[in-house]
Design a protein around this nucleic acid. Structure first.
Length: 273
DNA sequence: CCTAAGTCCTGAGTGC
DNA sequence: TGCACTCAGGACTTAG
C-alpha cells in the first residue's frame, strides 16, 4: 500500500519510537528469502555499531542516515517497518538495536528492498537521478510544471501522474482520488488537457497527499504505521474502492475498470473523457 | 479462480 | 537500417 503518505507515515512513526540521533545498531540480520535487490552479508556487517542519525524520505524511499552509510528501503506493495520483538512470518530484515529493541522489515510479497549504501554512492544513485518533484515538499511542483510535462503526451493522464519521473509519490489509490477531485477522466490523453485542468490536478495531488499524511495514511488490507496502528484516510476515500456507489458530488454511480493494468475509479458524469 | 498499495524490463511501434 | 524515444503489458510474489 505504500504510496507517499504511507511512507511518510512510517517515517514519522519511526522518528517517534526511535531515540535518534543516538540509536545504535548492534547487528543486522536478513532472512534467506530474496527481496527485489539484496545487500550481501558483508555489506550488512559494515553498519554494525553505527548510529542512526536521521530518517529521510525520498519519493517513496526511506533513507536511514548512519554515521558512514545510508540504509535505503523501498516498501514495494506490502512492506512495513516496525519495532517488533517477536519474529513473524515474512520478517526479512532485523536490525538489532543497543538496548534490545529490534527494528524489523516485514514484507509478504517481497517487492520491496533494502540496501546498504556508502555516503558517496548516494549522489550517483541512478534510482534517484530521474525522480520528479515531490508534491508535498518541492515548490517546483506547480500546475505550470505539470502542464509542460503533459504536452504532446499520448498516454492517459492517470498513467502520467503515476510516472515517478514526472512526479513522485502518486500511486494507484491517490491517482484515482486526485483525478476525481480535479474532475478529469483517468483515461484522458495527457496532451489534450487544458492548462486550467492541469492546474486543478496539481492542486488536487498536493491536497490529497497532504490530507492522507495528516490521517496517518490509508489502510486497505495490511498497512500499519510503525507503532502498529492503522491509518484512517481510507475513511475519506471518495473514489477508490467505491465501484457502483453514488458520486458524492452528483449522485451518479462510480465506475471502475483497469487502465494501463491498474484498477481505476471515476464518476462518468463529473469526469468526462 | 480472481484481486492487491510498485517498480523494472522487454518489445512493439513511431519518427527522424 | 538504425537510433532514440514512447507506451503497454508482463513479471515478480503471497494472501485472502
Amino acid at each position: 500500500m505504500p504510496e507517499l503518505p504511507e511512507v511518510e507515515t512510517v517515517r514519522r512513526g519511526l522518528l517517534e519510537i526511535l531515540d535518534l540521533p543516538s540509536e545504535e545498531i548492534v547487528s543486522v540480520k536478513k532472512s534467506s528469502k530474496k527481496l527485489r535487490y539484496n545487500s550481501t552479508l558483508a555489506q550488512l556487517h559494515q553498519v554494525k555499531s553505527q548510529k542512526i542519525r536521521a530518517i529521510h524520505r525520498k519519493a517513496k524511499y526511506l533513507l536511514f542516515e548512519l554515521d558512514r552509510h545510508y540504509l535505503l528501503s523501498h516498501l514495494g506493495m506490502t512492506g512495513s517497518w516496525r519495532i517488533e520483538q517477536d519474529k513473524r512470518k515474512h520478517d526479512h530484515i532485523r536490525i538489532l538495536l543497543k538496548g534490545g529493541r529490534v527494528l524489523t522489515y516485514h514484507d509478504p510479497r517481497r517487492f520491496g528492498f533494502f540496501e546498504v549504501l556508502t555516503k558517496e554512492s548516494l549522489s550517483q544513485l541512478d534510482r534517484f537521478k530521474s525522480l520528479g518533484p515531490d508534491p508535498v515538499v518541492d515548490p517546483s511542483f506547480t500546475g505550470e510544471y505539470l502542464f509542460n510535462k503533459t504536452r504532446s503526451k499520448q498516454t492517459s493522464i492517470k498513467s502520467l501522474i503515476m510516472d515517478q519521473k514526472v512526479v513522485v509519490g502518486v500511486g494507484n489509490i491517490y491517482a484515482s482520488e486526485a483525478l476525481y477531485l480535479a474532475g478529469i477522466h483517468p483515461e484522458k490523453p495527457a496532451g489534450r488537457l487544458t492548462a486550467f485542468q492541469v492546474e486543478r490536478l496539481a492542486e488536487a495531488i498536493v491536497e490529497v497527499l497532504q490530507d492522507a499524511i495528516d490521517c496517518g495514511g490509508t489502510t486497505i488490507s495490511d498497512f500499519k504505521q510503525a507503532g502498529g496502528s492503522a491509518g484512517y484516510f481510507q475513511n475519506f476515500l471518495l473514489a477508490y474502492g467505491r465501484d457502483r456507489e453514488p458520486c458524492c458530488f452528483c449522485g451518479h454511480r462510480i465506475e471502475s475498470r483497469a487502465i494501463v493494468g491498474r484498477n481505476s475509479f471515476w464518476c462518468p458524469h463529473c469526469q468526462k473523457l
